[in-house]
Amino acid sequence: MSQEKLLEVTNLKQHFKTGRHSVVKAVDGITFDIYQGETFGLVGESGCGKSTTGRSIIRLYDATDGDVKFKGEDVHGKKSKKDLKKFNQKMQMIFQDPYASLNPRMTVLDIIAEGLDVHGLTPNDKERKARVENLLERVGLNKEHANRYPHEFSGGQRQRIGIARALAVDPEFIIADEPISALDVSIQAQVVNLLKDLQREHGYTYLFIAHDLSMVKYISDRIGVMYFGKMVELADSDELYKHPMHPYTKSLLSAIPLPDPDYERNRIRHSYDPSQHDSSEDPEFREIRPNHWVLCTTKEFEAYKQELTEK
């Protein structure tokens, strides 16, 4: 993994108007970088803004404020059609629901080739078909599947089609928004292994959004934890699981049930109470040890540091 920044998100805000005077601050000023070739996991409860973050990055929403830079170039803001196209080709998305994200009236061939057509990547029908068949094989399906419709596939197979569609235009960066939560356990492992293999072969960079913390730990190099539109902790995934500092991260980790009856009988749960924080000043994102960032006030910062050195 090189340390070259592929994506820089700076103070990203995404607010939605829900009435004349009410605004939902789905994402409220988050900052992070994603390096070339890594998998960045984004976790949090439903409603914490993790999906909105992913969608804002790929411009499905226009950001309220803040910058998203992809390879040093600004993603948001005015752009010509040509620039947009170029950018859209480099960044692709895999959606959560494999049942809703494939057009039921299109064949698999047309679904996967749509991106190729838009970007004019295939000169003729023969090559178009060959490329789709190649993609199908890459994601573990047969080329005979090309002429079928989505309803003829199981959930896991559909998610493979969704992945093939994302890969079709040769992207560098892929946002996977809960790609496995709609799938069965045994199938989840298949899809996660596929994503990992593809990354090893082609060097893709992933933003992996999920609420299943054990899967996120398994696939990610670094993890960001979100709570109510804010990033509360960011660290290498081992570091985060070994030394969670923010009380919310602790509560989230202590809530994952592990498939081990003995462990479960003795589990201690931490519940999170937002009022336990020091309210004397606004918390800031601070680095408590190299590459480990926590949202905290100065006082908490000292306390966390203390806690870390004691360990």
Binding site: S154, V185, S186, Q190, S214, Y218, D238
Partner: peptide
Amino acid sequence: WGLLGSMPTLDNEEESLVAIPGS
């Protein structure tokens, strides 16, 4: 075995999950 193998541990070591093939 397959069900247990397809669950990730919170372990450090990077090992592949044993997916149950097929559907």
